[in-house]
Design a protein around this nucleic acid. Structure first.
Lengths: 189, 189
DNA sequence: TCGGTAAAAGTCAGTATTGACTATCGTATA
DNA sequence: TATACGATAGTCAATACTGACTTTTACCGA
């Protein structure tokens, strides 16, 4: 749903080709959403069939496939845009990345390896966060800032959680190390 | 990927039917992942074709379709499970729910409505969080606790962010209200 | 003991998404 | 000047996922 919203939203600033849309989204990296080229074309075709977009054939342009298809927002499309916008802002959907599943089965790995893997994860988060921070322009409009703030909030939460998880696991592995130490040296009863 | 992991993981505690798997996942609500029935059947069939599961036809059982298909983890499946488990824990994937897109285009709505919608969102988060908390058993194994903690961390981050966003928008709307007040009463230069 | 409802166990047609492929043009460089 | 390369612009077959449908059985109340 938010993918359609994104496409309609980008078309508010004037007609564009599918490739234009793709490039804009890709250029913003993580900020917007994950939307592959093939999917962009699929979605704008569907939006067109639903009457939300209008296609025109721009003949004799530069570039390959000399005739490019240019998409324009219709009045219906504008209406649909605000409908979707309201829905997206209003409703909260939690996204599952799969760590929860990983945690549930974590005991199938030796504790030391689990700690090692979580540490790798922590590093990955830190690097991803840095990438997002890099892309932030201080002069961005408030709307953009809210979006960036959201992204960073989630990443920070992930970071803090992973730190806490590591602490817990470390305590656990220390305990078991102590136990085996005790067992090893008190030899029986 | 984590969906396959979940299925393989659940099969560690013994052979099960597709429906069993579905029920277990559904019973845990938000905790695991979003996995529809149709998708469960699709995935276990694929896992079977890849040699990770073995099917047996349990004939003459009670229940409808008297012959149920029972799936068992193979040795390859066990290997694949740990491979996936490592991958899932190690790699960080950020999940896009679409709020970012909503925020980017928020200025297309009147500020008052934006505030109203974000407030609805905040309420939705609070209720979802309560649902998750409800399902928490204090006697759950550490692994489960880590998973629950992760979920709650993300929800809390979402909550804090939305509160902050609302504050920002409110300040903004106050400013514009003051401006229109000033304009309304000073009637021209 | 009959009818209605809910749970068990799946199937399947359709939708959404991906990844890999093709083809054209501008341009820098050997 | 030929050519290799990257950006433009898109197509399409394959995969992943959904939602609505079906059938059988158990059980409950009238």
């Amino acid at each position: 749903m938010h993918k359609e919203l994104l496409l309609l939203g980008l078309l508010q600033s004037g007609p564009k080709t599918g490739y234009d849309l793709y490039r804009i989204i890709a250029a913003h990296g993580e900020l917007y959403t994950d939307l592959k080229k093939g999917n962009v074309y699929y979605l704008i075709e569907r939006l067109t069939e639903s009457g939300y977009l209008q296609v025109k054939l721009e003949a004799g342009a530069r570039g390959p496939r000399r005739e490019r298809l240019i998409y324009t927002l219709t009045d219906q499309g504008l209406q649909h845009f605000t409908d979707l916008l309201r829905d997206v802002v209003r409703t909260y959907e939690l996204a599952h990345t799969g760590v929860e599943v990983g945690m549930v089965f974590l005991s199938y790995l030796p504790v030391d390896e689990a700690i090692q893997l979580l540490e790798e994860r922590r590093q990955a988060i830190i690097m991803r966060r840095a990438l997002v921070v890099q892309e932030i322009r201080a002069d961005a409009p408030v709307a953009m800032q809210l979006a960036q703030d959201h992204l960073l909030s989630l990443m920070d939460a992930e970071l803090i959680w992973s730190t806490r998880a590591l602490e817990r696991l470390s305590r656990e592995s220390e305990v078991s190390a102590t136990v085996s130490y005790a067992v090893g040296h008190s030899s029986g009863s």
